[in-house]
Nucleic acid binder design. Sequence first.
DNA 1: AAACTAGCCAACCGCGATTAG
DNA 2: TCTAATCGCGGTTGGCTAGTT
Length: 283
Amino acid sequence: MGRSPCCEKDHTNKGAWTKEEDDKLVSYIKSHGEGCWRSLPRSAGLLRCGKSCRLRWINYLRPDLKRGNFTLEEDDLIIKLHSLLGNKWSLIATRLPGRTDNEIKNYWNTHVKRKLLRGGIDPTTHRPINESKAPRDSPKSRETEDPIVKFFSFSPQMEKKESFGGERNYQEGLICKKERVEYPVVEEKCLDLNLELRISPPWQDQQHHDETKLRFGTEKYRCNACRFGVGNGKECSCSDVKCQIEDSTSSSYSSSDISCSVVGYDFLGLNTSVLDFSSLEMI
DNA sequence: AAACTAGCCAACCGCGATTAG
DNA sequence: TCTAATCGCGGTTGGCTAGTT
């Protein structure tokens, strides 16, 4: 019973990929598309395991990969996302277009981790090292002290009473300037983060963008799932009014004015408007 | 110039979840 | 419903390169 084996392990190459293998893989995927990694090696004439092909494509050959050094913005974003998601590299990668989970993971282990440690930040907890060693007390104190909790302990839709001030503070790690701001605290929200994550790139797939624009004459009419790549595993039909109406994360719109630009999306289980990480102050 | 060390990163390994039969 | 393969992910490793002694 069950499926047939994915590959004959005795007859597969291992180790570094050659230019010829790369070419074969690229040209095969270009003409047949991604998917069915099991049968791909044989079809493409490669003596590789499907798993190996997939890895090579995703981490190295994909045309949309961004090469070169990480920018400061990417750096910050990685730290922020890691503080929220931990070692969920694939999820983090979805927020960094052109970067792969492997690349981010490597970057984290070789650069960011060290940088945080130098600054006295525990890269695992994202808290000052001294504090990380100390036993945690009550949930209440966590709510008031944990910068991550602080960040999510307010609704971004609430009006700011004061503009952000404050200074970058390495020792404090991801210290939110928001502690200086009077925000009504939305109780308990962050203590029980819904980690059924619906997180995805903030960027817009160009083709999708073009198609939508062509259809509506504007990119305005896009559901959140599409706008943010948040599909929740459901098939996207964003160009349909139906889809827009079913967009459960919408906060307010009328049928005559459906605009994703005013609609929130569900990030970490929090209904919120667009989450702008640039508003998070970090190192 | 040679030996050693540290950093980097592509690729492998093993595991859990999902899915085909 | 069960079994086994596939897929995707995170952790780890090994080889290459650059810098230092």
